[in-house]
């Protein structure tokens, strides 16, 4: 009666697994061929550091998209938590404590998104579209539209955005740690399994005894935390909080997640893919700058790359 042989169930094709990685390598080779200085360690470190902010946001976004949701408010969460941190520092709070509180406030903003979506039964797109403008508006109110400066000269705080750890920029170290922690959460813990389950079939998940609402609220909380963490790095890097910081960052994050092969309808995708997606976008930004392509054209190229990647992804079926 038994079935013989191994079945190719077609769930993960070669492209799905390695396609984004190939694309990244190809991009590397092409840019390096056109401008060898691209490969200089200093530039690579630069590239990684520029990538780290988008990476943190995109990691959180991956969880959300896996459940079939979306979060448009991450850029605003970044800005608001950054402004609050800076404000606390200016008023004399210990910088590290201010950062901790600021990140925690970011978590709360994410949790509020989650509550609106689950308890308020709002579509994620609508709920986070609303909170996007609310959080941005609050940032503008709080900062009166002006940058918050004079954050003191705590060395630890300066390190966060500008320091090095064994020659590696601290933001990159944070990105790597965040990747491993979230990778473990998604792929080795029951929390991750539940995330995929909800994206695959919410009704079945509920009946299987998964606390769907709670998992979702936590996921939006994670996304808020990651955005605020990115905000902390940015604040340190600029040594100030900018009221317009993080604008359109949600778009780069969503693009990275999709480039990494995660399906916008939920249930399918991997965190490693997002890491590659983030690097593709970072490489494009950095490479096109090096090659002297005008920033107007850069936008066009980025859009074209997304379309090509998604088309290739489609082809597998």
């Amino acid at each position: 009666m038994g079935t013989q042989g191994k079945l190719n169930d077609g769930s993960t094709s070669i492209w799905q697994k390695f396609g984004p990685l190939f694309a990244l390598l190809l991009l590397f080779i092409v840019i390096a061929a056109l401008n060898p200085s691209f490969l200089e360690p200093l530039n690579i470190m630069n590239l990684l550091r520029q990538t780290s902010i988008n990476a943190l946001i995109a990691f959180g976004m991956t969880f959300i998209i896996l459940t079939g949701g979306i979060d448009l408010s991450v850029g605003s969460i970044l800005a608001l938590s950054s402004a609050l941190m800076a404000g606390m520092m200016v008023s004399g709070m210990d910088p590290i404590l201010a950062i901790l509180v600021g990140v925690l406030l970011g978590t709360l903003m994410g949790v509020l998104n989650g509550l609106l979506i689950t308890k308020g039964k709002m579509a994620p797109f609508i709920a986070t579209l609303a909170t996007m403008t609310i959080y941005r508006g609050l940032t503008l109110v709080y900062t009166e539209g002006k940058p918050v400066t004079g954050l003191g000269d705590s060395e630890l705080f300066q390190m966060l955005g500008r320091g090095y750890f064994f020659g590696i920029p601290v933001p990159v170290v944070i990105m790597i740690i965040a990747f491993f922690v979230l990778w473990f959460l998604l792929h080795k813990m029951s929390f991750g399994r539940k995330t995929y389950a909800i994206g695959g079939n919410e009704k079945s998940s509920r009946i299987s005894g998964i606390k769907v609402d709670r998992v979702k609220i936590m996921i939006y909380g994670i996304a808020g935390t990651m955005a605020a963490l990115a905000g902390a790095i940015l604040t340190s890097r600029l040594n100030s909080a900018q009221p317009t910081a993080g604008q359109a960052y949600e778009m780069d994050a969503i693009a990275a997640v999709v480039l990494g092969g995660t399906s916008l309808s939920g249930g399918k995708g991997r965190l490693f893919g997002t890491l590659i997606g983030v690097l593709i976008i970072g490489t494009l930004n950095n490479g096109l700058n090096l090659l002297g392509v005008s920033s107007f054209y850069q936008q066009v190229v980025k859009g074209v790359v997304i379309i090509v990647a998604v088309l290739l992804d489609r082809k597998k079926s």
Binding site: S11, S190, R193, K194, Y196, A197, G200, N201, K203, S204, S205, I207, S208, G209, I210, G267, K268
Partner: peptide, 20 residues
Amino acid sequence: KDEGLILDFSVRENIGLPNL
């Protein structure tokens, strides 16, 4: 199809789900 299984999950993941 609608309430018992997660069709994109493997046999293992489906059986595992309520037993996590």
